[in-house]
Structure formats: structure tokens, C-alpha cells
Design a protein around this nucleic acid. Structure first.
Lengths: 119, 119
DNA sequence: CGAACAATTACGTAGCGTAATCGTTT
DNA sequence: GAAACGATTACGCTACGTAATTGTTC
């Protein structure tokens, strides 16, 4: 199928799909003339990338998993679990950071009030 | 003072300071020959930028406040309060998003387990 | 041949870090 | 003249969006 069809079926833009190819995340498909010609096998790969991004993974973090999937090997469960566990830790760190930012902002509000309030 | 001194006094890199100038966040300083020559007034401005970044503000969000400070006008309290309130809302949205991501990741772990576990 | 689709650059986004090359001040 | 400091490009990073221009397939 052509790139437009793959984009439609996966909900991922043509530009994004070409981007994945450019950075070596997915293998280069065959060409029908100058047009990229994707096999059905690309559908689950693109979908996996999309789903993974939604839960916070960057494209570089997906390299190894996607590679193995593209090679048709079995899904690397242990690796996936490790990535997930690390990502959960990262997310919690980020949440903590944001909570501290919020705290600091509330402090700032109070300081501004005390400094400028005409009471 | 030269840029190295300003960088040292504020804890902000020379490159960052030049960057603020490039994007019009701070006014162009005088030159002593080809060297940038900063007045004392730049110190609080650079420090304000740094502090604001720590609590989550982007450089573009600081444009208006920094401009007024550079012009020597009085500090725009109402504007600052609005920015802070909006930022707090943004942070809470982001925290919610991260919590949903974490939830999704935990779901994913369970699914992987159910799918591949040899029990 | 025209409609529909695709291909290939290339710039923009945020905020600088990191060279690389070269001029300046003491 | 050397040491120390500064200046000016320009590329790198994240993940594509958005043109702009041009070729291709039916």
C-alpha cells in the first residue's frame, strides 16, 4: 500500500512515517517506482510506535523494541518491562518537580502580595 | 562590566545572555570596542529571567515583564499575577496528564503479564 | 490529459551547549 | 608577544508541521 493508505489506517501522518524511516526507526519499504510501497506488516509497527508515544516514550527509546518487531522476532517482554518501569520512575520524578514548581509559584504570589499590597 | 563578569554574578552562561539579546528579551548593551559592556542594571534583569525559568516560565512568556523592567517602569504586578495563575493551571494540567500516563503504563504492565506469563 | 497522490528539500519550533575560527585587551 | 577574554557563525537536539516545487500513476 502507498504511504497515504498507511497513514489513514494508523492515524499517523505521512510526514511522521517518513520521519521514522529517516531516523532509522522503521526499515525502508520497497518502492513501486518512486512511491514507497508498504506491506501489511508495517501497520502494527506504526501502531506500536503511536501507542508508545502516548504513554511517554520518545522515538529513541523505542529503537530497540521496534527493531526487534520489524525483524519479526518475538516481542522482547523483559526489555519492555524494564523500559516501562524506568518510565514510571521518570514520570514520578517529573510530577514531583511540577509539584515543587507549583509550591514555588504559590510562594511567589504571597511575596508579591506582601510586597505590593496597600493594606 | 563584560559578559563574563555578568555571567559569573548571575550564574547564567555567556551564551545564554547573548541568546536573550538575540531574541530581544533584553536590550542590547553598550559596547566597549567590540565587547559588550553591561551596566549594573542588567544584574537584576538576568536574575529575574533565571528565577522565572525555574518556576516554569518560557522566555517568550517573560517578554512583556522583562521589557517593562528594562524600561525602568514599575513592576507590572497585575500582569505577573495573571501569568502565575495561568502557569499554576498549566502545571496542574500537566500533572494530571502525567498521572494518566502512569496509569496507562501500569495497565500496560498488567496486559503484558497476562499475555506472556507462563502460569 | 487531468486528478490525485507522492517525492524531495528546507525552514520553524525552545533554549541554549558545544565547537571552530578569529579578533581584542592587557 | 602571550594569556585571557570576547565576537561571530553554525550545527546539534525532539518530532514532526507546513509550505514549496516537481514528479508519478491511473
Amino acid at each position: 500500500m502507498l504511504i497515504g493508505k498507511l497513514a489513514e489506517l494508523t492515524g499517523v501522518s505521512r510526514k511522521a512515517i517518513r520521519h521514522y524511516e529517516e531516523i532509522g526507526l522503521i526499515p525502508e519499504p520497497d518502492r513501486k517506482g518512486t512511491y514507497r510501497d508498504y506491506s501489511e506488516g508495517y501497520i502494527p509497527i506504526i501502531r506500536l510506535i503511536k501507542k508508545s508515544q502516548v504513554v511517554g516514550f520518545s522515538l529513541s527509546e523505542l529503537q530497540e523494541i521496534v527493531e526487534r518487531k520489524s525483524e519479526g522476532g518475538e516481542f522482547p517482554i523483559a526489555l519492555a518491562n524494564d523500559l516501562i518501569d524506568r518510565k514510571i520512575l521518570d514520570i514520578n520524578d517529573e510530577i514531583d518537580r511540577l509539584n515543587r514548581q507549583e509550591e514555588a509559584l504559590n510562594q511567589l504570589k504571597i511575596e508579591l502580595k506582601n510586597t505590593f499590597e496597600t493594606s
